[in-house]
């Protein structure tokens, strides 16, 4: 059983996935952030691989990516940092990034290396369903990596079912048609989440985009298995001092 499946087998309510850009705030923050998140009570960790043109991210995450790139973060560097992380962290960890840097690294090499260091799954928003089936699915399966698709309030029921069938680990429900880190009113999202709940999908569902505090986390958890927080956490550890303490405070106010 994969680490992600194992997590949801143990806990299928209020699962908290926290996103942080690798190499942010400092180049070598990656492990410190990961360990702090684990200590603070996160269930799943999503590490972002910074990219020059991150279409599906909002301004806060893009800015953290710019800083990480300036810090010198690369995929090669990230794998070096993650080389021994499984000695201290047992939580499922997924990588999120854009397809272009992965192609340059060599997609198959990338998957092999990710699996080797102990990564559990991938979120690559600019690999759409058609390309996934044609070119990428077999490679990810070969290396035992889960692949998580996104669905949005605009996605048709038929398409949601197809994306669910192709996903493994969990399904990422984008809370609105907006971008990560937005401050929009959350209430209209509820009917969409309810719709997802009623569809009885194969995969657990985690809600992302716009989850920033206890109240938004609670709403998401009412209908789904949990949620993903990104921008709000990036802001919380800005500057890079006392990451452990800041992470503890931030996660504490979300889950308690």
């Amino acid at each position: 059983m994969s680490r992600i499946n194992d997590l949801f087998a143990r806990k299928n309510k209020r699962v908290l996935n926290v996103y942080c850009t690798a190499g942010y705030p400092q180049l070598d923050s990656t492990i410190e952030v990961t360990a702090s998140l684990k200590a603070a009570g996160a269930d799943l960790i999503e590490l972002g691989m910074p990219y020059s043109d991150p279409l599906a991210d909002g301004p806060v995450i893009q800015a953290s990516g710019t800083i990480a790139l300036q810090n010198g973060m690369t995929i090669t560097k990230l794998f070096e940092q993650l080389k021994d992380f499984r000695n201290q962290i047992s939580l499922p960890v997924i990588l999120m990034g854009y397809v272009n840097p992965l192609i340059q690294y060599g997609f198959e090499n990338f998957c092999a290396k990710a699996a080797e260091v102990g990564i559990d799954g991938l979120i690559i928003p600019d690999i759409p369903m058609y390309e996934f089936e044609k070119e990428y699915k077999a490679i990810m399966e070969k290396h035992g990596l889960d692949f998580i698709f996104l669905v949005t309030p605009e996605t048709s029921e038929e398409r949601i079912r197809k994306l669910d069938s192709l996903s493994s680990g969990f399904l990422y429900a984008v809370s609105s048609s907006s971008l990560t880190g937005s401050d929009k009113d959350f209430s209209p999202v509820e009917s969409y989440l309810q719709r997802l709940q009623e569809m009885k999908l194969k995969n657990p569902v985690l809600v992302g985009f716009g989850i920033k505090d206890k109240s938004t986390f609670d709403i998401a958890c009412k209908y789904t298995n949990g949620a993903i927080i990104g921008s709000a956490y990036i802001k919380a550890i800005e500057g890079g001092e006392d990451i452990e303490q800041k992470t503890k405070e931030f996660i504490g106010q979300v889950v308690n």
């Binding site: 990219y51 279409l55 272009n100 340059q104």
Partner: peptide
Amino acid sequence: GRDGILHGSRSLVMQTEDGQVV
């Protein structure tokens, strides 16, 4: 440029060795 993906299509793209668009 080398093969890459920019703005939604696969094409030739000017980029660093690490695949960051220049």
